[in-house]
Design a binder for these strands. Structure first.
Lengths: 248, 248
DNA sequence: TGAATATTTGGACGACAGTACAAATATGGT
DNA sequence: ACCATATTTGTACTGTCGTCCAAATATTCA
């Protein structure tokens, strides 16, 4: 790990009181999720995780075989409930009559489950989404597969629902704007203190409620934007930088 | 680096043919920038960089002392020109008469220099901004200092300029929306292939020109959005979910 | 209970990390 | 040519990494 962990209180002490099950596996998962979502995958070692969970490094290997396997299991835990919740809210949102309200509900259906996970209520959804944000930047191969398999359906459903409500806007534009939504969401979870700093304290970046409201408001407005009727036809010559090569 | 380097024992021979100036320092900087912006800081080793630059690992230490020092120098190279360009374009933008055009110009003044660096024309700006995006997710300590020192001024200038053009919108809201802009920008540079995939090929995420146009259009619309209360005064209950809890 | 199984432990392995350093070499001014 | 300096090289040091494994311990069920 890059910084010293300062010994966060993830100790599995006092376990025998209520539950007869120590369930080291769960403790390891929780510790890994917390550490990965804070420092990133590459910066956290298996030993860091084991120590935070009060377990032996060998135990991690026993339960999850590899470090990638551990990450995979974390994703498996959250993806199902989160996307199920999104589907429910999206179906609800589609039935809203007023266009403006419907759009807002659709965006909310996508954003809300990213902050509140179904199973874990203590900021679990936020933690997992922050993890997703970090992983998208670090570019882990295991994650890339999961995303294409699991999240693309949800994203398509979002875009389709929006397109239904805004049929006059090209689908391609909506893909872009939905992409920007996810980027804004990720960035807010990764660097919330930046909002507090730039607003000189008048906004709290770590307040999920505020973040959601601002994000929904901005996104609904962006989605409804018409094409610019090209006051400047093509970006200036300086914007010649088109890396034809593949990124990532 | 994540993948195995295959350990080719071949040495960088035949270097003295054309140019009489090896300038290994520059080669190391270029290689490090390329590798860091592709795989992240933690995933790339000093040895990876040295090999990519055709240099000896000790040479990296000689020129930049530490790995962090190398990263620091990369930032130093780009921050000055990029922010100077932003200031120029921003001053230009402020003088535009029409409100809509002015807003657009202001946003462009912030976005364009992120894609086209002053010195390097072959996608250098894009590469550096992608690096910044990855670093913001990985959370390096050295970078955090640079950002607070160097980029906050630029961000404040952007927000102030927008606030001048949209005085009826609370500054706090503009901070949020500017934050979303940066998040969207970062995410587009980090995962451009996602746009191509979700649009089923009808949009090219790696095309900087398109990305800029879409980003500017969406951002201008988002910036002008009024509070949700104003246009539709009806409080709704459709999106039943209730956010309100703190995160992190 | 005792046997079968599941889990935990502590240590080991080879690979690779960042950095340091003396020797070798290249460079530039006189 | 010479010397002083700048750079490059090869290697070595000390950690830490992910993973493995045999022994120890806990758990479950006949």
């Amino acid at each position: 790990m890059v910084r010293k962990p300062a010994r966060s209180g993830i100790k599995p002490d006092a376990k025998a009181t209520s539950t007869r099950k120590p369930n080291m596996r769960e403790a390891i998962l929780a510790a890994a999720e917390e550490l990965f979502s804070t420092y990133g995958f590459n910066a956290v070692s298996v030993r860091d995780i084991a120590q935070a969970a009060g377990a032996n490094p060998g135990s991690v290997t026993y339960h999850f075989k590899t470090k990638d396997g551990l990450l995979l299991e974390i994703y498996r835990r959250h993806c199902g409930p989160m996307n199920r919740r999104r589907s429910e809210l999206l179906a609800e949102a589609r039935r809203v009559r007023d266009l403006q309200d419907r759009l807002e509900a659709i965006v909310r259906a996508y954003v809300l489950p990213a902050f509140t996970s179904g199973s874990d209520l203590a900021g679990g959804g936020t933690r997992f989404t922050r993890l997703r944000a970090i992983m998208s930047a670090e570019g882990n191969e295991v994650v890339r597969k999961i995303i294409a398999q699991t999240f693309d359906d949800t994203s398509h459903a979002l875009i389709d629902a929006i397109h239904e409500s805004l049929p006059h806007i090209p689908r391609t534009d909506l893909v872009w704007r939905g992409h920007f939504l996810l980027g804004a969401l990720y960035y807010t979870l990764v660097t919330p203190e930046r909002v507090s700093r730039l607003s000189r304290g008048s906004a709290d970046g770590t307040n999920a409620g505020h973040a959601i409201e601002e994000l929904v408001r901005a996104t609904v407005a962006a989605l409804q934007a018409a094409r610019l009727d090209q006051p400047t036809p093509v970006p200036r010559k300086t914007a010649s930088a088109n890396p034809g090569r593949a990124l990532t």
